[in-house]
Each structure stands twice: as C-alpha cells, then as structure tokens.
C-alpha cells in the first residue's frame, strides 16, 4: 500500500476516532455565571488607569514589593548606576557612552544571575523588552514564574505555593532599563563616580562604579560597587552577584511539575 493512501486512511481513522461537532461558546451564559470575574476586571481597569495617571514612575517601590526584591533591587542599582555614571560623569571614561549601554541592553534576550545560594534565569520578551518568565533556585527553594502562574516550591517542607498570576521580578523593561530608570536616578539624587580599574578577582579591567544613594525619609542610604564590562558595556557583577546575558535557556527551564506527594497551597 502506498504511503499517500496510508496517510489518507490514517487521517480518516483519526477523524473517526476523535472528531466531533465543534463546540459553540455561549458568551451570554458565561457572562451570567462569571459576574464576579467581570466585576473584578472592570474594577481593575478603572484602578489601573488611575494608578498610571497618579504614579507614573515610582519604579523602586514596585520593585521592592516584589518577591525577589533582593535580586531585583540589585539589578535596579546596577543599571541605575550605569545611567548615572554616563549622565553625570562622562569625562572619566570617555569611551563609555550611555548610548552604548542602551544599545547593548536592547539585545538582551536572557539574564542569568549567580547569587550567593543559587541562581536566577530571566527570559526576556524580545518585542516588549520585559521579563517573560524566570526561574530562581535559591537554597532549597525553587521559584518558577510563567505568564499564568508563579510556583514556589520549598523542597524541605515539600510544599508548593501557587499564585494564580505572574509575580513580577523587575517591573521595568530589561531592554529599556536605562531609559526606564533614568527618572528614578534623578529623583533620588544619587551620587557616584567611576573609573577604569583592574579587578583582582575578575582578573581584567572593568569600569568600577561606586554608588552612593543618600538616606531619604525613612529609608537608609546605600553604598555599592558595580563592575561594568568595558567591552560589552553591560554590568557583569554587583557585590557577590555575577551577571550573564543572552545565555541559552535550557528546554523546560520554566516548566514546573508538582512533585508527587507535595502539599499544594493556592495563594
């Protein structure tokens, strides 16, 4: 029997086995049974518009509220510093221009951060420049955020906590980080200076950025040092956190299967 006929016969068999009449969606009925969701959606829309007009750029507060605030805050400082360095003192390293960093950040498709007790992997949406998914492995806790859900698995307790939403890692867009953060830097009157130095640990020359954020109101000040790669113009480390960009994302990095026997808690 010829392959073409075999294929056609198989098509018919599959159709016979699983086909059925197309289901029709009765939206009016659905509306009646999902009034609560519709009301929430309508209220979200109203709140969203109000928020945008009243608080256009309080990025820092949003980031600090996130569940991986430590890393996010680090990333914010790193990139805020790059902005400030280039905006405030271009003369110290004339080869380093803001446009280069902005351009470099445009092509970031993934970010991997090595933290003290694990690592974080962000996938960046190339169209929006925003994070799309992330995976954090820190000690015995695994966090996987997808557009639909965020899973936090405590391996010691064998408990999976599931949020029915994407818990944002960093509110600003990665590939537009520089532009998005510029306002924040100006608002906080941060001071910094930088110079090209040989880093003993990295064993190469880097742009060392020394940051001083003064205490404001109830928040204390911050002193930090960031290393920017003079070649790629991207921040490569911040304290003990090491950063890599455009790393290959292993298949299944953002898949999460509930381990057998794990307690599941919906949040």
């Amino acid at each position: 029997m010829k392959a073409g006929k075999n294929s056609k016969d198989l098509d018919e068999l599959i159709s016979r086995a699983i086909s059925r009449e197309r289901p029709k969606f009765d939206f009016n009925k659905w509306e009646q049974t999902h009034q609560e969701e519709i009301e929430i959606f309508n209220s979200q829309t109203t709140r969203g518009k109000a928020f945008r007009s009243a608080e256009p750029s309080n990025i820092w507060r949003i980031i600090m509220n996130s569940k991986i605030a430590k890393l996010a805050a680090a990333a914010v400082v790193i990139l805020a510093v790059v902005v400030s360095v280039t905006l405030i003192d271009r003369s110290a390293t004339p080869a380093y221009a803001i446009e280069q960093t902005i351009e470099a950040m445009r092509s970031v498709s993934s970010v991997r951060a090595y933290i003290s007790d694990g690592e974080v992997l962000f996938k960046i949406n190339p169209e929006t420049g925003q994070e799309e998914c992330y995976r954090v492995e820190e000690g015995n806790v695994l966090t996987v955020a997808t557009p639909e859900k965020t899973y936090r698995y405590d391996k010691d307790k064998n408990v999976v906590r599931i949020s029915d939403e994407y818990v944002i890692g960093v509110e600003v867009r990665f590939s537009r980080f520089i532009e998005d953060m510029a306002d924040w830097v100006k608002e906080h009157n941060g001071k910094m200076d930088h110079q090209l130095e040989f880093d003993q640990e990295l064993q190469k020359e880097v742009i060392k950025v020394y940051v001083h954020i003064p205490a404001q109101g109830n928040s204390g000040g911050q002193e930090s040092t960031i290393n920017v790669d003079p070649k790629t113009k991207l921040p490569i480390s911040f304290g003990t956190i090491r950063l890599e960009y455009n790393v290959p994302i292993p298949p299944g990095s953002f898949d999460f299967e509930i381990p057998e026997g794990a307690e599941v808690v919906y949040e």
């Binding site: 999902h34 969701e37 519709i38 929430i40 959606f41 979200q44 829309t45 969203g48 949406n125 169209e127 929006t128 925003q130 557009p147 639909e148 029915d164 939403e165 994407y166």
Partner: peptide, 12 residues
C-alpha cells in the same frame, strides 16, 4: 475567567 482577571497583565 482566569484570562479575564489577568488581561491587564498581558503585555503583548
């Protein structure tokens, strides 16, 4: 229902 609740978070 879930999509409606999260529609605002859909970036693209």
């Amino acid at each position: 229902a879930r999509a409606l609740l999260k529609l605002r978070s859909l970036r693209n």
